[in-house]
Simulated assay, not measured.
Amino acid sequence: MSTLHWLGLLLLAVIAGAVVPFQSAINANLGRGLGHPLWATLASLMVSILVLLPVLLALRLPLPDLGFITKAPLWMWTGGAFGVCFISLALVLMPKLGASGFIALALAGQILASLLLDHFGLFGLAERQLTAPRMLGALMLLGGVLLIQFSAAPAKALAAA
């Protein structure tokens, strides 16, 4: 893989992460407007379908193998449930924790879960041992998360200053 290709993949991963706080903040407002976070979760997922369908049609992708539905292990169908969990929790927690607080803590969970997924090679991922440098990197990231979450002055304290 060329360096340029690798850098492109890294940039796309950063963009994927950058859209999360926007999605969460927008959905939190939608949840307040609709009267409950779960309505906003449903609306978000419906918009996802409406955006994705034209892309699928434009790319003229073949229909999936319907025989796979009966063969696939049950865990393969849980991704949507995890999506609902994330969207719903973001709707509830972001207004309380702030964007940086929520995303920092969500990142902490992602780091810890990712280390476990890699270490045990779960869900078909290649095994990547939990080495001392990887643990140090995770601890440094988690330290940053703690600094982000607990060093922010509350808005009321700033207004009084």
Rank of each mutant, 00 (worst) to 15 (best):
M1I: 04
T3V: 14
T3L: 13
L4A: 11
L4D: 02
W6C: 06
W6P: 01
L7V: 08
L7S: 13
L7Q: 10
G8S: 05
G8Y: 03
L9D: 06
L11H: 05
L12E: 07
V14R: 00
I15Q: 12
I15Y: 13
A16M: 08
V19S: 15
F22Q: 06
Q23F: 12
Q23N: 15
Q23C: 15
S24N: 14
A25W: 11
A25T: 12
A25N: 07
A28D: 06
N29D: 15
L30E: 06
L30M: 11
G31A: 06
G31E: 07
R32I: 14
G33K: 11
G33C: 12
G33F: 08
L34I: 08
G35M: 09
P37R: 04
L38M: 15
A40E: 13
A40T: 12
T41G: 11
A43E: 04
A43M: 10
A43H: 11
L45F: 12
M46P: 01
M46S: 11
M46A: 13
V47P: 03
S48Q: 13
L50T: 00
L50S: 03
L52W: 10
L53C: 06
L53P: 02
P54R: 00
L56H: 09
L57K: 09
L57D: 03
A58N: 01
L59A: 12
L59K: 10
R60D: 03
L61R: 07
P62N: 06
P62D: 05
P62W: 04
L63V: 01
L63R: 03
L63I: 01
L63E: 02
L66H: 05
G67K: 09
T70S: 14
A72E: 00
A72S: 14
P73G: 11
W75M: 00
M76Y: 01
W77P: 00
G79R: 00
A81C: 12
F82R: 11
C85A: 10
F86M: 04
S88P: 02
S88E: 02
L89R: 04
L91V: 04
L91F: 02
L93D: 08
L97D: 03
L97V: 07
G98R: 08
A99C: 13
S100K: 13
G101K: 05
A104I: 04
A104N: 03
A104Q: 04
A104T: 07
L105S: 02
L107Q: 09
A108M: 08
I111G: 11
L112P: 00
A113Y: 00
S114Q: 05
L116D: 01
D118I: 06
D118G: 11
D118Q: 15
F120V: 05
G121C: 10
L122Q: 09
L122D: 14
L122W: 14
F123S: 11
L125E: 12
A126M: 04
R128I: 05
R128N: 08
Q129R: 04
L130G: 09
L130Q: 10
T131F: 01
A132N: 10
P133L: 03
M135D: 03
G137I: 09
G137S: 13
L139P: 00
L139D: 00
M140D: 06
L141W: 01
L141D: 00
L141V: 03
G143S: 07
G143Q: 03
V145N: 05
V145T: 03
I148V: 15
I148A: 14
Q149V: 12
F150L: 06
F150P: 05
A152S: 14
P154R: 11
A155E: 13
K156A: 15
K156G: 11
L158P: 07
A159L: 08
A160I: 14
A161Y: 12
A161S: 15
